[in-house]
Computed example of a mutant assay.
Amino acid sequence: MLINLKDPDYFGHSSSWTNYIKGIKSTDENIGDLYDFIQGDDNYRGKTTIIITNDHGRHLPNVADGFTSHGDGCEGCRHIQFLALGPDFKEGVGFQTPYEQIDISATVAKLLNFKMESSKGKVMTELFK
């Protein structure tokens, strides 16, 4: 299942700092609620993988209009956050290998045991137990 929690990105592009912060807080709450539900359900606890990431990063502080015009190919926008939780993953992994967004789908394919033959992504092997 893919869930798009769009508020931080939407409000970031719309130039509303107040709503941007509210969007981050509500997204954090939504993720927390989902995590708590999974941990409280015998059918999902210990069997469910969660990957949390964003579609792009932010301009670096020295880029003009970086708040609203984020999401291009600049250095800051190419850096994203990534959190992976689940029974197949180690805890506390910090990447030594630089990865790209296309590597997320390759990693998901590995988890689901199918090949993405047309993908150029690399499996994030450091994550796995």
Results as ranks from 00 to 15, higher is better:
123 V>S: 01
91 E>C: 01
47 K>E: 13
70 H>N: 02
56 H>Y: 09
80 I>K: 03
113 N>R: 09
47 K>H: 13
118 S>L: 12
3 I>T: 08
107 T>R: 01
70 H>P: 04
93 V>W: 01
12 G>M: 05
64 A>C: 00
44 Y>V: 06
87 P>N: 07
54 N>I: 08
11 F>N: 13
15 S>A: 15
70 H>T: 04
55 D>Y: 12
1 M>P: 05
49 T>M: 09
127 L>H: 00
122 K>D: 02
8 P>M: 06
22 K>V: 03
112 L>R: 03
54 N>D: 14
111 L>H: 04
100 E>Y: 11
94 G>E: 12
70 H>I: 03
52 I>C: 06
80 I>L: 12
120 K>H: 14
70 H>V: 06
34 L>F: 13
109 A>V: 00
76 G>Y: 02
71 G>P: 05
75 E>M: 05
20 Y>S: 03
88 D>T: 03
69 S>Y: 06
10 Y>R: 11
118 S>W: 05
7 D>V: 00
19 N>M: 12
95 F>W: 00
21 I>D: 10
129 K>A: 01
8 P>S: 05
41 D>P: 08
47 K>F: 02
121 G>Y: 01
103 D>Q: 07
54 N>A: 15
98 P>C: 05
103 D>C: 07
59 H>F: 01
82 F>E: 07
85 L>Y: 07
16 S>G: 09
77 C>M: 06
104 I>P: 01
117 E>L: 06
49 T>S: 15
12 G>V: 01
120 K>S: 08
81 Q>K: 03
71 G>A: 06
117 E>N: 11
105 S>F: 06
52 I>V: 15
59 H>A: 11
125 T>Y: 03
44 Y>P: 07
11 F>I: 00
95 F>K: 01
30 N>E: 15
29 E>C: 06
126 E>W: 09
105 S>L: 13
36 D>N: 15
60 L>E: 15
36 D>L: 13
116 M>Y: 02
51 I>K: 00
83 L>Q: 06
63 V>T: 13
84 A>E: 01
101 Q>C: 00
104 I>G: 03
105 S>M: 07
17 W>R: 12
106 A>L: 00
1 M>C: 06
93 V>A: 04
63 V>H: 14
97 T>M: 10
10 Y>K: 11
42 D>L: 11
31 I>G: 04
21 I>V: 15
86 G>T: 00
121 G>Q: 00
7 D>A: 13
62 N>Q: 12
51 I>C: 08
45 R>L: 09
50 I>V: 15
54 N>S: 15
28 D>I: 09
17 W>A: 09
6 K>Q: 05
59 H>S: 07
119 S>Y: 02
40 G>R: 02
101 Q>V: 04
5 L>V: 12
80 I>F: 03
32 G>K: 15
118 S>A: 11
58 R>F: 08
97 T>P: 03
35 Y>V: 15
113 N>M: 01
31 I>Y: 05
93 V>K: 05
82 F>T: 05
71 G>W: 12
72 D>N: 14
26 S>Y: 08
41 D>W: 10
39 Q>V: 08
71 G>C: 11
92 G>R: 05
91 E>A: 08
28 D>S: 14
93 V>N: 02
9 D>Y: 04
81 Q>G: 10
96 Q>S: 10
57 G>Y: 07
